[in-house]
């Protein structure tokens, strides 16, 4: 038990530092594409610590207080149900008690808990952001579910560890074995990471910063910290599912950074979809590829 708790703390620390590093890179890279110099690499850490060092925070009652807590708890819980490494006792969290379907649903718990806090704060812009987020979710989840369902039915298991274990050589990686599923899932991946063109939820100009409109100080600090950790959880999930998993932390970082770089390129280059455009897009191209893959699978069987 102590080992598990220690491992959980390790996972939190690892994802936090990885996330801060990656997003530091993201900001510099973005700045370069804007032809700017950009902030120092650890600017995100500084921002985060500064937010925790604010002297006060706005409050709208106990539910507002609990929102960021649920958000962060949802993130960390989903993190603990993702195995980070394969063939290792380390960084497994509680993944043996859960599975992929559980994880997909766990990932929604946090945002919905936070949505309650946004609602109770009484900012209509925030609620608008929440609605956009939930609407966008329709578009993201459907192709994603289709792609992981292809994976699950292809591997005959819904356990993340077992899907990861089955990919023992490069040609067995699921991105090679199920290329259509991988491509479909990449669309959802970019959307779930909140990059352009699917970043309408937090669009500062259009909805006054989206769900986070009313959060400040320590609350914003928690939200910022969980955001990078959540992104890392998704990255690691994709590494587990499609890139053959990782046997140690360095391989994990290398693979996840490759994915992160893809996310960065898409996010930096493309402009933003409107909500309904995002959903319509996701329900067209990725869904058609996914359905095609399913049909091919079952005709070839």
């Amino acid at each position: 038990m102590l080992f598990t708790i220690f491992n959980s703390l390790l996972a939190v620390l690892l994802t936090y530092s990885m996330g801060m590093l990656y997003y530091g890179f993201y900001r510099i890279g973005n700045a370069r594409i804007h032809r700017r110099v950009g902030p120092p690499l650890w600017q995100n850490v500084i921002d985060n610590i500064k937010l925790f060092a604010k002297r006060e925070a706005p409050g709208h009652g106990i539910m507002f207080h609990l929102g960021p807590v649920i958000m962060t708890a949802g993130t960390i819980t989903s993190m603990l149900f993702v195995p980070f490494l394969k063939d290792s006792a380390w960084l497994q969290g509680f993944s043996s008690y859960g599975n992929l379907i559980l994880l997909i649903y766990l990932m929604v718990v946090g945002p919905l808990g936070n949505a309650l806090a946004v609602g109770v704060s009484g900012v209509p812009f925030g609620v608008m952001g929440v609605t956009r987020g939930l609407t966008r979710l329709i578009g993201l989840e459907v192709p994603f579910f289709l792609s992981v369902a292809l994976l699950m039915s292809g591997s005959g298991t819904i356990s993340i560890s077992e899907i990861m274990m089955a990919q023992d050589s490069f040609s067995n990686w699921n991105m090679m074995a199920h290329p259509a599923a991988f491509i479909v899932s990449l669309f959802s991946f970019v959307g779930m990471m909140g990059a352009s063109p699917f970043d309408v939820v937090g669009a500062p100009v259009e909805v006054y910063s989206g769900p986070q409109a009313e959060f400040g100080g320590k609350y914003l600090g928690f939200l910022a910290a969980q955001r990078v950790m959540f992104s890392m959880v998704k990255l690691i999930l994709w590494v587990d599912l499609f890139l053959g998993g990782a046997t140690n932390v360095f391989i994990l970082m290398a693979k996840s950074f490759a994915l992160f770089f893809f996310y960065f390129i898409v996010g930096a280059a493309f402009p933003r979809f409107k909500t309904e455009q995002a959903v319509d897009f996701m329900l067209k191209l990725p869904l058609i590829i996914g359905i095609g893959a399913v049909l091919v699978r079952f005709w070839s069987l």
Binding site: A73, I76, Y97, G98, G156, T157, I158, S159, F222
Partner: peptide, 22 residues
């Protein structure tokens, strides 16, 4: 056949993390 899920564990982990963060 293809996997299992432990509601007890999920609830406990979520509750534990929630308490720590609170």
């Amino acid at each position: 056949a293809s996997g299992s899920v432990s509601g007890f564990m999920v609830m406990n982990v979520f509750g534990g993390v929630f308490a720590v963060i609170l």
